[in-house]
Nucleic acid binder design. Structure first.
Lengths: 337, 337
DNA sequence: TTGTAGGCGTTATCAC
DNA sequence: GTGATAACGCCTACAA
């Protein structure tokens, strides 16, 4: 209880050697006679001595802590991303400081500041709305940084992502191949989410390249909220020539859209096919199970962490954009027309 | 870029004062003539100097980092708990190290070890299966510890939780008040989850106290998996005198159970009422929307963090068990018989 | 192979 | 008020 923490000096005294020697047996940094080593190890084992990370960091300039900032940990994509990071962080002996920004600009700023002060060894950064501030910060930050899902080409930092444009293109194409010609989409605000624009682009391109008429009224903008999406689906379903398929920017949105249908006796997928995005739990659990597109969120985290470690002491090496593969997951909310 | 980090000495030189003085204006620890203060502040502002947390920690023995260990961050309860922690951590100027154990005993051990080495200021601990090892560790750990959802009376540390027994009692009672007499339950293994036993107890007590026949075959044990729960629901529904209501130990399990019903033309809630537990997203999104019981997970995190801060330098003060209020959330998966 | 001494960036304790 | 100077716990030349 009142046991004050042991220091390297204590161990040195108990083993009858100098602090330097103790340090050497711990870090294997220089040869030590095996007799002395035994003795020191013995004392360490008996006392359960653990060197202080803090003192060590003061010298190494390495904290073995990496910072990860995400908009919303209760979002499944983020939490899986974080899991991926943790998983490989363990292997490389990092521990991580989690910063949940609630998508709030001020918090993003503050957290970056704090991480910098706490001298973390690197930062994994995700934001729905990367800005100039972030760019400026990262430009003068001299430790490894990896961004996730936050493509800003001028960032000059490696970015891990899927190809959102292509993913939505593929999803829309999937619907087209099913025979649908009137395909609607419920997307998300371009300003609020960088992916909003990209996903819209993929949708539009798929329509255009396949010679389908592109009707502006078929595209509706929502946020990720249940209510808004429900409304948008209502609008779509009340159109004179209503779409026979609608693509949603997330699984939750798809769930809301389908809910509207269920409550208004529109059969899914018989009368209208609905697609989600993310392959989250809800897409598996919801009835009908929702056809969606998978993002390898766990892998994205794992790769980000691996990259951080690689970049250490060599932060300029990798500026590439890592595009991970997405995949259409066929389930029961879509069918041939 | 190549700009080496500024130290307090640099600032002192630039301002033409001693390090001690700089330290004093930063920490307001002793009076400084306002003229000198101005000068120093000016230099700090211009240079953007930030004191090193690491060096500071070496002296204070305070890292302003707290550790939080949870079984599974992608579980909604956990992620909301973490959010609660983060939220107040920000206020008190803490940052946190997140440890995701994947419910793995070895990882729990390792993480506690690491947190201890990194000299965090306190630990918030959650485990489905707290053990002797944990107890031993915490007994000799002399910094604040708060456990969440991991009741072990001998822990001798404050624990934040809801009253799981009472919550399940209330849920079952809710079903009883709806007129149900044959009430089944799909629970979770007692060995794997401390709450498994408690929730069962509440269920049984409600039946007994209300003079309903308690039929062992009405209780089925599952884990949190979709498949297993689906099977268990199938067993329940194939009973000769099948229950008209079933209580599930989680929302996901409820969703699986209802899915079985939908796929076998058993109407929910007309033919069988189904209740969940947790008030997670899925319970709101699923159709029918699932009646459930809310745990204030966010608040639990917030309180845990607040407690840690309170306990600082006074770790023995609060050994109480904090039982937070739960609440039945009525939705569409249950009805009067 | 081992020990001595200086330094990492702060804060705290003295004097002045 | 202010400035030396000694910690804090560890690592790393430099000597021995």
């Amino acid at each position: 209880m009142g046991k004050t923490k042991l220091t390297i000096t204590d161990i040195a005294n108990m083993a009858g050697v100098s602090k330097a020697t103790v340090s050497r047996v711990i870090n294997k940094t220089k040869p030590v006679s095996s007799e002395v080593r035994q003795r020191v190890m013995q004392v360490i084992k008996e006392t359960g001595y653990k060197p202080s990370f803090v003192a060590r960091s003061l010298i190494n300039k390495e904290t073995n802590i990496i910072g990860i900032v995400v908009p919303d940990i209760s979002n499944e994509f983020c939490s899986q991303l974080v899991q991926g990071v943790v998983d490989v962080a363990n292997i490389y002996n990092y521990t991580m400081i989690l910063c949940n920004t609630f998508s709030n600009y001020e918090m993003e700023k503050d957290f970056l500041e704090v991480l910098s002060e706490k001298e973390v060894d690197g930062i994994i950064f995700m934001s729905y709305t990367p800005s100039d501030y972030h760019k400026t910060f990262f430009d003068q930050y001299d430790k490894p940084v990896v961004t996730v899902n936050s493509k800003i080409s001028e960032f000059n930092k490696p970015n891990i992502d899927i190809d959102n444009e292509l993913a939505t293109y593929d999803a829309t194409k999937y619907l087209i191949d099913l025979g649908h010609e009137n395909i609607g989409m419920i997307g998300i605000k371009f300003e609020d989410y960088t992916t909003g624009q990209l996903r819209y682009n993929g949708y539009e391109r798929a329509l255009l390249e396949n010679n389908l008429k592109y009707d502006k009224s078929y595209y509706r903008e929502s946020d990720f909220s249940v209510e808004k999406t429900y409304e948008k689906m209502e609008e779509l379903m009340n159109l004179d020539n209503r779409p026979t398929a609608v693509m949603c920017a997330s699984d939750e949105m798809a769930a809301s859209a389908i809910t509207y249908c269920i409550e208004h006796n529109i059969k899914v997928p018989e009368e209208v096919s609905v697609m989600g995005f993310d392959n989250s739990k809800i897409s598996k659990l919801f009835v009908p199970h929702i056809t969606t597109v998978n993002q390898p969120s766990f892998d994205m985290g794992a790769i980000a962490m691996r990259l951080i470690d690689k970049m250490k002491g060599n932060t300029d090496l990798e500026k590439d954009f890592y595009k991970l593969p997405h995949k259409i997951i066929e389930r029961d909310s879509t069918q041939k027309i």
